[in-house]
């Protein structure tokens, strides 16, 4: 007992002495260093962190662009645990970050709390909505973009079976799942859709196994919305070779396997982050809820789609796109809506 408490005393003493020494010395000189004209933009990732092949990476891309094109000074804080969201946002607030981005719906509560503590600073939130005078929220109609991929898959399949691989069954993944199913059904109701979930977002080997099971059951095109598990889905298509396809998600994943990635569902988190960050610079920032759908070019198919998909199918996809933009098709975003969904005669 006394041995342990002696340790305690010694360690705590040493730490405090250093802390005080540094704390007393540091802060004053630093204030003047930051040139006043450079605006600060930053982001806090969710637990997925950078390299999630999903919204964190996309947001980072947008932030990078803001650094290069708009001269923002940028910072990224990766969250290790859920409990870190609030303090991570606060640490950005403490540094007078002009706009702090919170990436992912898991940060909703944290943004709600912290934004009110820093009324003079601005915050952005991806994939969820917080109504506060200094918060801009951006959500995406993933189902609309996924619908187009469903159309492509249904038109392109040679086997009459396509697949969907999800990460975990949560509402945002349901958007992809339901939209894709609806697209397939609209384009060709006879095409069968297999569905599988990995139960994780960060295990590519698992993603590959689920994809292989679907290929084995006759699917030849698989759309994934499973974060880094998708690397395995693409690997599976690559390994199966010609005639087997993966469809990427969030950003263009074509480069991972140029011969086997047919198309990707672009979710332009980068555009949302860049645009709203730019508004901070232009002083046109509005604390509203931005919805990015097909009409806003917030979701859609990637440029590489035309590498593998013939013109006439792209034309048809374009037709569906217009119908969605016009409101002729309301794409289902959940399983219940999907059940009620009847595709219009195209």
């Amino acid at each position: 007992m006394s041995k342990s408490s002696k340790w305690a005393v010694i360690i705590v003493a040493v730490v405090i002495i250093i802390a005080v020494a540094v704390g007393l010395r540091k802060p004053k000189e630093e204030i003047a260093e930051v040139p006043p004209e450079s605006l600060k933009a930053a982001m806090v990732t969710d637990v997925g962190g950078l390299g999630d092949e999903s919204f964190n990476d996309a947001a980072y891309k947008g932030l990078k662009e803001a650094e290069e094109k708009l001269g923002f000074e940028i910072t990224v804080v990766e969250s290790k645990k859920m409990d870190d969201y609030e303090p991570n946002l606060r640490s950005l607030g403490d540094q007078d970050t002009d706009i702090s981005w919170a990436i992912g719906f898991l940060l909703t509560d944290a943004v709600d709390t912290v934004a009110s503590e820093y009324p003079d600073l601005k915050f952005g939130l991806i994939d969820s909505v917080v109504e506060q005078p200094n918060v801009a929220s951006a959500t995406f109609k993933e189902e609309e973009g996924s619908f187009l991929l469903g159309v492509i898959a249904a038109k392109m399949t040679k086997t009459g079976t396509v697949g969907f691989v999800g990460g975990m069954e949560v509402p945002v993944i349901e958007h992809f799942d339901a939209g894709f199913h609806a697209g397939v059904r609209a384009a060709d109701p006879n095409v069968k859709v297999l569905r599988g979930y990995t139960g994780k977002f960060d295990d590519p080997a698992k993603g590959k196994e689920v994809a292989l099971a679907q290929f084995n059951q006759g699917a030849d095109i698989i759309f994934h919305a499973s974060g880094a598990c998708g690397l395995g889905v693409i690997e599976a298509a690559k390994e199966q070779g010609e005639g087997y396809w993966a469809m990427g998600v969030d950003s263009c994943q074509h480069h991972l396997a140029p011969d086997n990635v047919m198309s990707c569902m672009m979710k332009r988190v980068d555009v949302a982050v860049f645009d709203i960050t730019e508004r901070v610079k232009d002083e046109t920032f509005e604390p509203t809820h931005y919805v990015f759908g097909l009409a806003e070019n917030g979701v859609g198919t990637c440029d590489k789609t035309s590498d593998h998909v013939p013109e006439e199918i792209l034309d048809e996809v374009e037709k569906y796109r217009e119908m969605i933009v016009n409101g002729d098709i309301v794409v289902p975003a959940s399983y219940t809506e999907l059940e009620a969904f009847t595709p219009p005669a195209a």
Binding site: M1, S4, S5, W7, A8, I11, V12, V15, A42, T75, V76, V77, E78, K80, D84, P87, N88, S91, L92, Q95
Partner: peptide, 30 residues
């Protein structure tokens, strides 16, 4: 030992907290 755990937890917790500001201020990867 319970008291040893207390000290170790304090150390780990301090480092975990410090990691946040190391990222946001000094831009050091976690």
């Amino acid at each position: 030992h319970p008291f040893g755990v207390l000290i170790a937890a304090t150390l780990f917790g301090t480092l975990a907290r410090g990691a946040i500001t190391m990222q946001s201020i000094a831009k050091i990867p976690k």
